[in-house]
Design a protein around this nucleic acid. Structure first.
Lengths: 254, 254
DNA sequence: TCTTGCCTTGACGTAGCGTCAACGTCCTTG
DNA sequence: CAAGGACGTTGACGCTACGTCAAGGCAAGA
């Protein structure tokens, strides 16, 4: 006959834990000896080791109780479910490790040089300060959330060294708070599509599309705090134009 | 400027979580707009995404705060530590998966057939009931905690089919509560060592040693609830005799 | 105007134990 | 045989990292 301390030591938990499991009805209260001490059998060891295995796999104790009371088939199904969640957790941890690897670079708030220079040029070219700041914030955000991807992209495609692209970006910033149907919006949209067509083989457009392909990235781009009605219409016009000229794969879902 | 909901959505947490981090001083309270709403910048996104990354790696929030306030070197060291703990956790989960795989066999409380038959034979041979029960419990325990290993061992080495071994086990059970210095203890010890020497090449001894080589297994064998003073002395005599005849590797640590 | 949705603070609830507190019991050692 | 230390008992409060109302203010579309 085992004491509570021996039982706990066998399965590697504390006595407090065993008593807690009693209070939750997971482990039945064993008979007491004359002194009022709990006395356990091998059967309790089996039950407790099951509980501990499931609990240490992260199964909520309520669910552990259900599984222990359930039939053989349901128990096996439950264990399979737990196993799947363990695999998912391991996947999450793997992903987390690569996130952490990017975390210790202290320059996440510093803009990559290329972008910093480009932004200074835009400021110098008369783009409105407030919107240049928003533009800068958006890139900082993107760089903060996807440092490796952004750096790789910028290293490969230096769009801002192209004076035509730079000029279009300045015009875009200047049109931030004009009326959405201002003719300058239409003009810029046409110029942009022209530029895209001229650069269709440069690879940078494709790279840009790949860069921002997942859901979180989409939230950055469509964030309302950086969107004005003129920009909304501008991006719509550009998307339509690009699709018409076959510069962008038509997405069937819309 | 981001609202708290937008900020939270960017990094994938709830607004409650963001406010909680404010209350813990992990994320500074941002300025408010005229309505009293919190307004965030890209800088806050960076800081929050760091916090979330560390927290979801299981780092306690107090420690997260320390790391964020620490210098670059200490931060890097801390992140390395976290990474190590993630690897350890993945190792734990892998081990847990194999434990779970053994969990759904409903016969963990059932003794393997070989043992069941052996125990019946011992009972028939006049071994005291109470101690046969203890013996049985110990094997149930071992089987409960190490089902795969025990089954593999029993499948390979059927010691109880050897009538000499069976007889020795019965004698052992009969000597449970005699005086530790009863001459029958010495006699049994000598017979046991003789038997071990005769079977030194059978492999079963080595297998037995490997089976119970880790710490938890040791706790089963040395559990006080199954040890009497006579058995204590018996096992001491056997160990000494086996070492003298070179049947067991001498452990340098004692 | 009314509804809907996001924002505010504050308070209480939750899981899975850890950690006293205040006390009885068992075993060993002087 | 007394004393100490290791173990057992119940009960209550503490802890982390939030979730979840409650009770209200502000903004914007039908």
């Amino acid at each position: 006959m085992l004491s509570i301390g021996e039982l706990a030591a066998f399965v590697g938990v504390s006595t407090r834990t065993v008593r807690f499991y009693h209070s939750r009805g997971l482990l039945p209260e064993p008979p007491r000896d004359e002194a009022g001490y709990r006395r356990y059998t091998a059967e309790d060891v089996v039950r407790l080791s099951r509980i501990v295995a499931l609990a240490s796999a992260g199964v909520p104790l309520v669910r552990v109780g259900e599984l222990l009371e359930a039939g053989e088939a349901e128990f096996a199904a439950g264990v399979a479910e737990v196993d799947a969640s363990l695999q998912a957790e391991m996947k999450r941890l793997r992903a987390l490790r690569s996130t952490l690897a990017d975390l210790d670079s202290p320059d996440r708030l510093a803009l990559p040089e290329i972008l910093g220079r480009a932004i200074e040029k835009m400021r110098g070219a008369g783009a409105p300060t407030a919107y240049v700041d928003l533009y800068r914030d958006a890139w900082i955000l993107a760089h903060a959330l996807y440092p490796a991807e952004i750096r790789a992209y910028l290293a490969e495609f230096d769009l801002w060294s192209d004076p035509v692209y730079l000029d279009m970006q300045v015009r875009m910033l200047q049109l931030a708070d004009v009326d959405a149907h201002d003719p300058r919006v239409d003009a810029l949209a046409e110029d942009t599509v022209d530029w895209m067509e001229a650069n269709r083989d440069a690879g940078s457009l494709k790279g840009y599309g790949e860069l921002f392909s997942d859901e979180r990235a989409n939230r950055i781009l469509t964030a309302q705090w950086i969107m004005t009605s003129a920009w909304d219409r501008l991006s719509e016009l550009v998307m339509n134009g690009a699709q018409e000229r076959g510069l962008v794969p038509t997405t069937p879902e819309g």
